[in-house]
């Protein structure tokens, strides 16, 4: 494991991307997912419960992928980008569906 050594900031950045980035991404997945399912006619409670259940698998994927992906830039842009865009879209949909 000591074969490749990274500066501490690089490891810290990966860890932050996997945890905070993954969390924001999952938040977006759950909110947007719930809204899309609701818009498709599912009852709100079922929609949010389905997207939460799948959301934990997305959280797991994001957490692992942040360490596996080759490019740190890509990790941050997908996780943080998705973590901003998807919640915003979900929020917008929720207002539109009122």
């Amino acid at each position: 494991m000591a074969s490749v050594s990274h500066p501490p900031w690089y490891v810290a950045s990966r860890v932050l991307a996997s945890t905070l980035g993954g969390y924001a991404f999952t938040w977006g997945f759950i909110s947007l997912g719930a809204m899309l399912l609701f818009a498709a006619g599912m009852n709100l409670e079922e929609a949010s419960s389905l997207s939460s259940m799948l959301g934990f698998l997305v959280l797991l994927w994001g957490f692992c992928w942040a360490f596996v992906a080759a490019s740190l830039t890509r990790v941050w842009s997908v996780l943080a980008g998705g973590g901003v865009v998807m919640p915003a879209a979900g929020w917008g949909l929720s207002r539109a569906l009122m």
Binding site: W27, I30, S31, P87
Partner: peptide, 8 residues
């Protein structure tokens, strides 16, 4: 993930 309790 308190999506329904906060944002929505």
């Amino acid at each position: 993930f308190p999506v329904l309790g906060t944002m929505m």
